[in-house]
Nucleic acid binder design. Structure first.
Lengths: 239, 239
DNA sequence: CGGTTGTTTGAGGACGTTCAAGTACTGTGG
DNA sequence: CCACAGTACTTGAACGTCCTCAAACAACCG
């Protein structure tokens, strides 16, 4: 593990307050690897051998149904459950609980990833209170990500879910009450899967949002009024 | 807070290893209250003033859309996201992060609930390493609950989701490879909402499952073969 | 330029919801 | 014990949403 990678890794809140000795041990046990798009980090059902930390790039977490490997039979389908990027840790729960992964992970944008041995992480939990605290905070944040998504999934329509996604994008921008321009960072297939709809239906949802003043030109999206979007999807405005 | 309540509360893994002094302080600051069905513990958007611990009974976590209070306008809808019962802690994330609730909570079966002040809990996180560890483990388990549900929601049909629910019920029973009888502990409305479908559609899903050897008589369900259910919903068998 | 891939559009169908009516189950008071 | 009301659940029909399949475009790359 080189200097730059170590520095990036240990600057994360999760590791920031650990004593140097612990960090060195972690760096020795782990390694960093660059992974191209489509690379699969692990498949659901596998046991969690590493904690994966994304130093750059993006990784999708997806569930699948049917036969994962080719072969014949059932019509393999998959759905993206979450997308993580630089600074995020992928599926700490499986590592902490020492249980098999519930989902698979695939790189969607060339990623530099730190592989930290699972047992070293569990040791850290035991030995360093601050690590445990940071882990709890991180898990709490991740829980909220899923909770919000589940709520959307259960009670909002496809165009409304798209609108919600745009709102979160717009929140990142310097918000003025009125119009905002944002840029999609995902291709449509991926976005559709994440939002829980087919690519075709995403297209139609995009068309639909023209009615509330949202216009797509390639990856650029111009939102006439974020407030209007809020109203459209009955947004509760909770971060 | 009486003796019995304290004993039950502090027997939970989350509190089990705390020093007596800390427990006493917690007991002093908090209180226990019995809540009837339909009682609302909190609404989404409110700030998290207490950590709620269920000593008995059951509580549903639900998201809502439209106008919560009556008034006119949009057609208020809600969906149950998770159901917690004795021994569970409700929405630790909002408490730990000191952020508003993303969802509301409502008692579905008369519940005895401990209200522990949020700031006392955050103090515990800071001061007691073991509490932080246990909290992290609990959050990890809760994350997996939501992750599994989200996956189901995105890629399984209504009858398949019902089948998955029956499988988890059957897991609780002494499993033999073959037939199992389980008992529903929820009324259909509630179950339907949790599974993300209308009550009518739950009825039809129930009818559908007869084809794979599942028969409902009131709250009793007889499952001819759990293996058959697994195959039906393309279950991956991950706990 | 042709091939490849990604996105859009259209038609048809499956799944799920809604609304309305019917049936079963519960408890209550006569 | 039965009639009754009230509730919960089921059933049916119509509708809407979303998916699938197929084809048409568009954009990109050799």
């Amino acid at each position: 593990m080189n200097q730059a990678d170590q520095a990036a890794l240990f600057a994360l809140p999760l590791f920031a307050h650990l004593p140097v000795a612990a960090l060195e041990r972690l760096a020795d046990g782990g390694f960093v690897h660059s992974e191209p798009p489509e690379a699969v980090l692990f498949l659901e059902g596998e046991s969690a051998r590493f904690l994966h930390v994304i130093l750059s790039g993006r990784v999708s977490l997806f569930g699948s149904i049917g036969d994962i490997a080719a072969s014949g039979g059932l019509p393999h389908r998959e759905a993206i459950v979450e997308i993580f990027s630089a600074g995020d840790v992928i599926i700490a729960p499986a590592v902490l609980l020492d249980l098999p992964y519930l989902m698979s992970a695939r790189v969607i944008e060339t990623a530099r990833i730190a592989f930290l041995p699972a047992d070293a992480i569990r040791d850290l939990m035991r030995e360093h209170a601050d690590f445990a605290r940071q882990a709890a905070m991180m898990l709490a944040r991740h829980w909220r990500l899923l909770a919000r998504q589940l709520k959307d999934q259960k009670l909002r329509s496809a165009p409304q879910r798209l609108a919600r996604y745009l709102i979160t994008l717009a929140n990142g921008t310097q918000g003025e009450g009125q119009g905002v321009d944002v840029e999609l960072t995902l291709d449509r297939r991926t976005l559709a899967s994440w939002l829980g709809m087919s690519p075709e239906n995403l297209s139609r949802s995009i068309a639909q949002l023209a009615e509330v003043g949202v216009h797509f030109r390639g990856r650029k999206v111009s939102i006439a009024s974020v407030a209007r979007l809020h109203a459209y999807c009955q947004e509760d405005d909770l971060r």
